[in-house]
Design a protein around this nucleic acid. Sequence first.
DNA 1: CCACAGATTTAAGAAAAATTTAAGATTTAC
DNA 2: GTAAATCTTAAATTTTTCTTAAATCTGTGG
Lengths: 226, 226
Amino acid sequence: MNILVVDDEKEIADLVELYLKNENYNVFKFYNSKEAIKCIENEKIDMAILDVMIDGKDGFEICKIIRSKDFTYPVIMLTAKIDDKDKIAGLTIGADDYITKPFNPLELIARVKSALRRYTKYNNKEDKNIIEINGLQIDKQKHKCILYDKEIELTPIEFDILLYLANKKGIVVSSEELFEKVWKEKYFDSNNTVMVHIRRIREKLHENTKNPKFIKTVWGVGYKIE
Amino acid sequence: MNILVVDDEKEIADLVELYLKNENYNVFKFYNSKEAIKCIENEKIDMAILDVMIDGKDGFEICKIIRSKDFTYPVIMLTAKIDDKDKIAGLTIGADDYITKPFNPLELIARVKSALRRYTKYNNKEDKNIIEINGLQIDKQKHKCILYDKEIELTPIEFDILLYLANKKGIVVSSEELFEKVWKEKYFDSNNTVMVHIRRIREKLHENTKNPKFIKTVWGVGYKIE
DNA sequence: CCACAGATTTAAGAAAAATTTAAGATTTAC
DNA sequence: GTAAATCTTAAATTTTTCTTAAATCTGTGG
């Protein structure tokens, strides 16, 4: 992991470098913005730690440059101020976190790790938008359903039913509840439309009729997915 | 842990999101109440942080909606005012805590953690949804019965009978009471349907016929579980 | 130890719940 | 405005569960 560190206060920059190297990160350290900007263009950077440099505002500038070049890695700003407004300003130009000086070394490391964790996790998968159950992936955002790497085409209602069940993984849901949540209407008796949809979903998921793997029937109660 | 954040001030919402993500919470963030309300219905939320939005009162409304849908997760309100009356109003509609802006990030996180700790402790797993008796677990929500880590498949009536007995652990229940509670009908004489069900439950629980471990017969009175 | 009331077992038919099917209605997309 | 896709309805079918009733077993008091 390569971390860019920029601070015109030599002591601070050196200290940050020390802590990071201690954790086995590779550090590109600069005391001015000019060289740092070159580095941004030429090296593969995974994260930046920038001083806001109260007077010169170099830190903010560097952050803007990073984002303007479409790099998405995390940027942490260092500042002497403890003003919330400053934080807001920094964050709106694309910084991910803020650390006020003087900082606790452990806090620095914790935030660095946390930011990297988030970054790599986010860059790994479309994470939170996908629910995974046993090889069945439901992507809420893309409104897609993937079974063992093959997309299953579901109609809107089918998708909603499956999603509702998946969100309640393991919990039994009655036809009535399912109907009222998906249709947002009152349920009336002898309405087996939910059942027909369940049937079609099972068909599309290639469920074994006698022993479904995903949508299970709980007699006298409802359905559950697990 | 999924946390819903709603604030029409983008900077504040973004800031809250940042701090929460830093602590590895999953955040659903909205700048308006309309989408947020949809989210409440469709996602599994563990906590909400809402701006009171002094003028529009959207925050209060969202809180009311959450409670009206019987969600019990904690709700924290954000407000610029430091007016005690507002606090009282908020708390009476079901908010759990109050944070005044500008807030200290550490305070925010501390309150979030504290509220979640309280909530999850109260809602703790074996909570009121699982009854345990001697290695026999009855999970009402999942409608499951587990004996020594193996699931036992019970029919609806069997499940209800076992659950009724388990809820009255140690207390003797007559066939008549059992029938009327489970079937919700009047009991008539020479009705041995309850007994047949008891038999099948015992069979499924692998009860020793001569000396049942769970459902015990109290001669001339009824059954009890202990 | 016998009588007998209460409890259990059994199996088969009845009932209830879930599934399947297909046709017609509705919605959506072009 | 039409065709295709999707949804709803209703009836037939299948599956599972429940009830009944008769035969059998068991604990209790005389």
